[in-house]
Design a protein around this nucleic acid. Sequence first.
DNA 1: TAAAGTAGTTTATTTTATAAACCAAATTTT
DNA 2: AAAATTTGGTTTATAAAATAAACTACTTTA
Lengths: 101, 101
Amino acid sequence: MPENGKQFKPLDPLLHSELRLAVMSILLEVDNADFVYLKAETGATSGNLSVQIDKLQQAGYIEVTKGFKGKMPQTVCSITDCGRDAFAAYVDALRSYIPGR
Amino acid sequence: MPENGKQFKPLDPLLHSELRLAVMSILLEVDNADFVYLKAETGATSGNLSVQIDKLQQAGYIEVTKGFKGKMPQTVCSITDCGRDAFAAYVDALRSYIPGR
DNA sequence: TAAAGTAGTTTATTTTATAAACCAAATTTT
DNA sequence: AAAATTTGGTTTATAAAATAAACTACTTTA
C-alpha cells in the first residue's frame, strides 16, 4: 500500500500474525518464557511455534537461547528492546484502523 | 489455535488483513463508498481491492451494488450489520493481545 | 480514428501460515 | 534391559492468502 490518504499506517507484517502476536504479547509480560510454556499458553502446534519463533528472532524482536533444563533441551525466549518498540508501533498503527480511537 | 490458556481470543481471518481492515474502517464511517474512492483512500491496486471486496461481500460483511455513474461503471459498497458486529468482535479480540488494555 | 484513460476482473506468482512427518534423547513400562 | 512412549523440538510439505501483472470493455480526448 504505497500511497494513500494518510489515514492508515502500514501494519508490520512480522507482527500482523496471530501466533507471533500472541508470543510477543506473552514475552512483553514475563521477562522470559520457554518453548513449552509458549506452546501451552498459545495452544499452537510445535511446528508452527518453532517457525514463528525463528521469524521473530531473525527480525531481532526476540532473543532465543538454547540450553538444557536438567537433561532435557530447553529453548528460552525473551523480548528485545527492538521488539518492544516494534510492538508499540504496531499497536499504534492498528489504532489508525479503528474509528473513534 | 484450538486450546490455549484462554488469554487470547481468535482473530477473524477475514478481518485480519491490512486491506480488508482498511476497507471496513472506511465503510464504518461513511455510509457508502465506491470502488474509486476506496482505491484512493487505501492506496491499493485495483486487482487487490477487487479481490478483497469480493471476500468481504461473500462473508456478508459488506453489501456491493454495481451500477453506472453517467456512462461509467460504478461499484458502491456499504457495511452490513453483520460486518459492524464482526468488526467490533475483531477489535475486542485484538485487545486480548495487548497488555495493559 | 487512433491513443489514452477509466473502472474494473481474471489469472498467475509470491509469500504466509499451518500441519504433518520426522528426529534424537529421555523416561517409563514390561 | 529391551521395547514402547514421551518430550522437545526441527524439517518438509501442503493449503491458504496477499499481491501483482495482464487483460477486458468501454469512454473520452486529441
